[in-house]
Each structure stands twice: as structure tokens, then as C-alpha cells.
């Protein structure tokens, strides 16, 4: 049986890993390649690198960094942030990325999902959705949660799957950075609706939170950042605890 995956997420700005709370107030946490190598050694199943640089220089730095990451780590990694075209995706593929994650650009231009998937396969395309719950309805947002769109989460996730997404990475902007647990009911519903894997993101504060989203929340993978970056939970310790709960993880 395929194992539930544990995925540390590294936000990269101008070549350096940073972490903010609710996408605001950034703090430097380390070197992108060194951290990736360390996580891979500790048992991370995959890594996600998100480029949050706002400038062209920052983006160029990131592409060069992807090559170094690909040379250094022996587990799969996804890159995202600012991918707006097939050319952007091609460049990152050539640099050695295993998957690209597209977010705002897919909302602006949903056909982009199919264009990338038909060229490189669905396994290469992760559609990331940042959503917020407003008056009982989950709506996708862009620009780190600050801009609401008219896309309803569940129908947008279904559409992304039909267009060729290989995975859905859903972040609850209401939970991200709070360490109060994942939006489990939302993941459960997404996972039942979709036939592609669902990655849970936003809200991990404890081992119990991760266990819950992988069982009750039926997520295929759990992504987290700060709990790993600040050493609050070791990946090995986490996986041993999950195994004790009879969750199928790779140790």
C-alpha cells in the first residue's frame, strides 16, 4: 500500500528559506539546499519549495537554486511560485524539478493546467489552492490570501482534476500559521470527491494534528513548515508516532 507522505515545505525568498505567519512577517530560517538534504536524510518523503520572491532577480536566483537542489537531494521535490506559462514550467523541469505547483496562474488561465499536463504528464502538475471560508463557503484566494476569487473550492478542485492536475495541494488560509490543526472536514470531503491525491497544508501544530488529517481527513500527504523548521517535531519522531497509530508511513 502506498505510504502517507510527510512533506516539509520551504518558502524561498532570494535564495534563502523564510517562514512567515499567515504569509506576513518573514523570518530567515536557513539555506535551501542544506535544509533539503537534512530533511531527506531524516525521512521526509518529498519536499516542496515555494518561491516567494517578488522580483525578477529573485526568480532567477530561484531557478539556479532548483538546479542545486536537484543535484543534492535523492527524493522528489515540487517547486512553485510565480509559474505562469508552459515555458516557466519547462525551465523548472530542465533545472531538475519533479513537479511544479501552480496556483494563481491556474485560476487566471485554467487551460494552463492542461497545457502543462499534456506536455509533461499529470504527475508533473500540482494545483495549489489557497482558500478561505466566507459565510460557510470555501472560496479560492490569490496573492497569499489577500484577493478573493469567485472559484468555489470543491468545484475548482474537480475542474483542476479534469483538466489534468496530478495532485491537489489545498491550504486553508484560515488555519495556516495558527498551529491549531488542519481543516480536517474539508480534506475529508476533497479526498472523497477526487481520484487524485490530496496534500493537506496549513495548521499543523502537533503530531496529533498530522495523524488526524491523514486518518479522519483522509489526506494522502501532510505538508508543514514551521514545526519542522524550528525543530519542534523531528520527522523521524513524527513517523514513529504515526506508525504506532497504525498509519502506513515509510520508515
Amino acid at each position: 500500500m502506498v505510504a502517507k507522505r510527510i512533506i516539509p515545505c520551504l518558502d524561498v525568498k532570494d535564495g534563502v528559506v523564510v517562514k512567515g505567519i499567515n504569509f506576513l512577517g518573514l523570518k530567515e530560517v536557513g539555506d535551501a539546499v542544506d535544509m533539503g538534504v537534512r530533511y531527506a536524510r531524516e525521512g521526509a518523503d518529498e519536499l516542496v519549495y515555494l518561491d516567494i520572491s517578488a522580483t525578477r532577480e529573485g526568480r532567477n536566483t530561484f531557478a539556479a537554486l532548483v538546479e542545486k537542489i536537484a543535484a543534492g537531494i535523492d527524493i522528489p521535490f515540487t517547486v512553485g511560485g510565480g509559474i505562469g506559462s508552459v515555458d516557466d514550467a519547462s525551465r523548472l523541469l530542465d533545472a531538475g524539478a519533479d513537479k511544479v505547483s501552480i496556483n494563481s496562474a491556474a485560476i487566471r488561465d485554467p487551460e494552463l493546467i492542461g497545457r502543462i499536463a499534456s506536455k509533461y504528464g499529470s504527475q508533473f502538475v500540482v494545483v495549489a489552492i489557497d482558500a478561505k471560508c466566507v459565510d460557510g463557503t470555501w472560496k479560492a484566494t490569490t496573492h497569499g490570501g489577500s484577493v478573493m476569487t469567485d472559484k468555489e473550492l470543491f468545484s475548482w478542485a474537480m475542474e483542476a482534476q479534469q483538466r489534468g492536475a496530478g495532485e491537489i495541494l489545498f491550504t486553508s488560509m484560515d488555519h495556516d500559521g495558527t498551529k491549531g490543526g488542519y481543516a480536517c472536514e474539508v480534506y475529508e470531503r476533497l479526498s472523497e470527491l477526487l481520484s487524485i491525491p490530496v496534500i493537506a497544508s496549513g495548521g499543523a501544530g502537533s503530531i496529533a494534528d498530522i495523524a488526524k488529517v491523514l486518518t479522519e481527513g483522509k489526506a494522502d500527504a501532510a505538508l508543514a513548515a514551521s514545526i519542522f523548521h524550528y525543530g519542534e517535531i523531528g520527522i523521524q519522531e513524527l513517523k514513529e508516532a504515526l506508525r504506532k497509530e497504525n498509519i502506513n508511513v515509510r520508515i
Binding site: 502506498v2 495532485e167 481520484s195 491525491p197
Partner: peptide, 13 residues
Amino acid sequence: PGPDCKVPHMGWN
């Protein structure tokens, strides 16, 4: 693909 068969088969096995 089905409710108990996620496709792609993606991850560690």
C-alpha cells in the same frame, strides 16, 4: 481510478 484507487499511484510503496 476510484474512491479507493488514487491515480496517479504516487509516493512511496
